[in-house]
Design a protein around this nucleic acid. Structure first.
Lengths: 188, 188, 188, 188
DNA sequence: CATGAATGAGATTTCATTCAT
DNA sequence: GATGAATGAAATCTCATTCAT
């Protein structure tokens, strides 16, 4: 019914499987079950489609994390909540996660509005700064900490994806790994 | 003189700047200063070129690490030696590192021989297993540890690259970050 | 108007003049007055074009023969009717005939569906079988007779084409040659 | 050893399998086990190679027929001798025969020297003319008779090739078919 | 909104031929 | 004679995009 949605779904699937340049718009239209020209009605350009898909995914992920990671009593608990929410989302949306990864490692990420990115990261950075001020975590540059957390998250996700664990085992690993991460950044 | 080498150099430069699909073979040939057909004399296919470049880089990196990271007295020192060698290589070969990253995040990595990969990882895995047996690091699955180290390394490298630190500061950060990593995996 | 038709016409003309491999698709598109890509819109592959052209010609020829060669009172008359229809068609469609010849003498004929061919030949073979049963023609294998008739037809056509006879003379020769053929296969 | 010969053999095999334009000179060189450039040492041009191969085959075939078809007492016997020799050669040299066919049905045949062809056909035409003068065969144009015989021969050969008969059966069929041909052209 | 035929610039690859060794 | 790296024109095919219906 909703052709725009169908196009986004088809694009996601194919981009992840074949890469951005490896996926012709015609194939996306076909997979989506719409005419070639219809795609260009919704997304005037292939770049617009890629960017639109990224935005769409980003919005949905942020909504999920915001909904599931409420502020907790302690700094550690709050941070863990966010960590868990991110990873659970990633586990439930492997294709979307893969797409994000691919997007960031491509020249397309340059098309993103830099200000916009910083605005989105601000709450997270603020939280880290607070942790440092309160001497809970080590006094390292917040973007440095953020990078370490991100790649840590990415690594774990990759590990979970390339093995076939039970849900219980997965959640166990996620929880354990957070402790590893915490060991790394907590003030001794 | 060595046209094959010139082609590889041109390909590396352009692939990193424009992406695999964003770089036409004709441009590579031009940049390398050889005729269009010459490229296909050495690499029958664009895929072959991409794969050949990856292999070439991998070999040179491994050689560098092997040469610079000799076994040390303690487990930690040996591991740090490898860690430093990897990061120093990455810092000195940013384009190559970037290419590797792009390669792994693309559908092309599927073209790699799985056995070959495992064979290359074996010494590293063996070392980790030894550390676990000797109760020096935590008894976690070695592929898990390896994934965490890799993404950690990647994260640090990204951080170093996106900031413009002095060499001294860079080496300081690398050394400090190793300690963070060590905190994470060492047996308490 | 009908671009597909224009492409087929151009392809026929050029293939006969220059051979399959001697004719670039670009030249066909140009001769047809369509864009390069349009050709590939209708025929995804050059092979598809060659095959499509063959099929197109085959259909039109069969239609002509079926329309012009009605069953007659005697076996000989019926057979002559078909013989004449085939040859008249060939004389009126020299380029098409030439193309068919070229096609059969090329590796492309292997792309034809064998079953399809047999299905098309069946009525003809049935007729020959009937003639044998009724002791009108010699009791030879029908595919053998068919091959002889075909090459005979081909030979005559070649002779008519390489000389410049008047229409009257041509029809005379065709008629006479049928008698030669008939002498060859009729039961004595 | 004899590289020229090896090239001709490889060319024959590949041209028949893939067509003239479908066979790259590099593939011929490879199949012949010589370097790419060597081919062009012996045949300055691909066309020269094709023509050279044709000439080579033609010479060998003519030699065979001349050796095996001696003049006999009667016209019919002489003619039959030639007919048999031609067909036996074709059966023993299917690839060569196929090549000749392909050559004649290609634009390359235009490269042949017309005079040369006529000179080669003259003895045959003379024989036919003699047969007509002596009222042994029908008073038809000799090139017409020749065309009919040629395509008849071609048809039979095709039939023999597409079926798998025993040698005895093959020779039987060849002999029988000559009688059919003779019925066709003999003066009643 | 939706379609899909049409476009043409451009991408990858092929290949006959040359020539320094 | 023999080699095979090198060439570059040309061939097939792709694909984002447009537009009349």
């Amino acid at each position: 019914m909703d052709k725009r949605k169908k196009i986004l779904e088809a694009a996601l699937k194919l981009f992840v499987a074949l890469g951005f340049h490896g996926t012709p718009t015609s194939k996306i239209a076909q997979e989506a079950g719409v005419a070639n020209g219809t795609l260009f009605h919704y997304f005037p350009t292939k770049d617009d489609l890629i960017l639109g898909l990224y935005t769409d995914i980003k919005i949905r992920m942020t909504a999920f994390v915001n909904e599931n990671a409420k502020p907790e009593d302690t700094f550690k608990a709050t941070m863990k909540g966010q960590y868990l929410a991110s990873l659970y989302w990633a586990l439930d949306h492997k294709t979307e996660f893969s797409f994000k990864q691919q997007f960031h490692n491509s020249p397309f990420h340059l098309l993103l509005n830099q200000e916009e990115i910083e605005k989105q990261l601000k709450p997270h950075f603020d939280m880290l700064r607070k942790g440092i001020e309160d001497k809970i975590i080590k006094p390292l540059p917040v973007d440095y900490i953020h990078t370490l957390i991100s790649s840590h998250t990415f690594g774990l996700n990759q590990y979970l994806t390339s093995n076939e664990f039970s849900t219980v085992k997965q959640h166990q690993l996620i929880s354990d790994t957070f402790e590893l991460l915490w060991d790394m950044i907590k003030e001794n």
